[in-house]
């Protein structure tokens, strides 16, 4: 599969180079970028459809049924509808910044995709891929704050401020949970961590169960889904920071959100569940990604929203100390083992 992808890429590159001469390299990169974009748009659409169907099942409904066979084109229709809509700028909003926010948000999500392994295929292979992905993920709340501020709406501002307050907490949690993994595997590279699990013959979820639990909580917070969707709490803040965004801008934020979901799910399955290196290879990886996407959707279907003070209290006084404790214990155990 990977070899095949690489071969296709090489052949395509050779073809563009021979057709366009010197500018072939640039055209090749642009085409690859568009292909990657389309791939993620496809994931976002299918995840959106899966979400609507699964939540429909939980609600004892059947979900969308009329667009295409069994409703499979529903998200395509939604995307087309959103793209056709007029873009409305709120009165008194800062138009340039208002436009910039979803773009930043999408770009950070898109860039982090480049460093995330899709099976053993990775677009940019870096020794520090895990760190780079975390850094890029933590940029998107900045875009949220920028966009909410530029919207000139009180609901948006409140949503943006909530996002800022939450980011402080869950980024720490995410980083500390990851730190114990880095310590265990001695690596910052996602690929290396997967390889470590294959070599050790054990999934990291069994080595670091607490880190897994903490990571999944932080992950739900970072993709802003129930029970931590406070930034867009519909019943309180209309749509939170998204209130004023419509049409194409809204669809871009939605796309960025699903790309973030994909990255989180890929991180969970490769950091804790052996990635693609054990049984069934890439297909097993795809199955893992599917399972964790479904898990995220089920969490959304059954969890209620926490209040911001409760969430921050739990994060700062319960989970973050727990994460540090886990880190210290890991450190101690490793030191003892290394000393022996």
């Amino acid at each position: 599969m990977t070899q095949w992808l690489a071969q296709v890429g090489e052949a395509f590159r050779a073809a563009t180079l021979s057709t366009f001469g010197a500018s072939g390299e640039v055209i090749f990169l642009i085409i690859v970028a568009i292909a990657v974009f389309l791939m993620f748009a496809l994931y976002a659409m299918s995840a959106g459809l899966l979400e609507r169907k699964l939540i429909g099942r939980v609600h004892s409904r059947i979900g969308p049924m009329y667009t295409g066979p069994g409703g499979v084109l529903q998200t395509v229709a939604d995307a087309l509808k959103l793209l056709r809509k007029e873009i409305i700028y709120p009165v008194g909003s800062d138009r340039a910044v208002f436009t910039l926010a979803p773009v930043i948000m999408f770009l950070t999500a898109y860039m982090s995709v480049l460093f995330v392994p899709l099976g053993s295929f990775i677009i940019i292979d870096s020794q520090y891929s895990l760190l780079i992905v975390l850094a890029l993920l933590s940029l998107s709340p900045v875009a949220v704050l920028v966009g909410s501020w530029a919207s000139n709406s009180k609901y948006s501002t409140l949503g943006g401020l909530r996002s800022a307050a939450m980011t402080m907490a869950y980024e720490v949690l995410l980083a500390v949970a990851i730190a114990s993994i880095i310590l265990t595997t001695h690596s910052f590279s996602i690929i290396e961590i997967v390889r470590w699990q294959a070599d050790a013959g054990v999934w990291l979820v069994f080595v670091q169960p607490f880190a897994f639990a903490l990571f999944i909580i932080a992950a739900v917070a970072s993709v802003e889904r129930n029970p931590m969707d406070l930034t867009e709490a519909e019943s309180e803040l209309v749509s939170g920071w998204k209130t004023e965004y419509g049409g194409a801008y809204f669809s871009i934020t939605l796309l960025a959100e699903y790309v973030k979901l994909l990255i989180t799910v890929i991180l969970i399955s490769s950091l804790f569940f052996g990635g693609w290196a054990d049984f069934a290879g890439e297909i097993g990886f795809a199955v893992k990604v599917f399972i964790f996407t479904a898990l995220m959707i089920y969490i959304r279907a059954t969890a209620m929203r926490l209040r911001i003070d409760q969430l921050l209290h739990d994060l700062w006084t319960r989970l973050i100390p727990l994460a540090f404790l886990n880190f210290i214990v890991t450190f101690g155990v490793l030191a003892a083992l290394g000393g022996a």
Binding site: H59, S60, N226, A233, A301, T302, A303, M304, R305
Partner: peptide, 16 residues
């Protein structure tokens, strides 16, 4: 009520 607490499942069940 549960919808206002951020989760529509109970609402749809209640409708059922």
């Amino acid at each position: 009520l549960v919808m206002d607490l951020g989760q529509p499942t109970v609402f749809v069940w209640g409708m059922r």
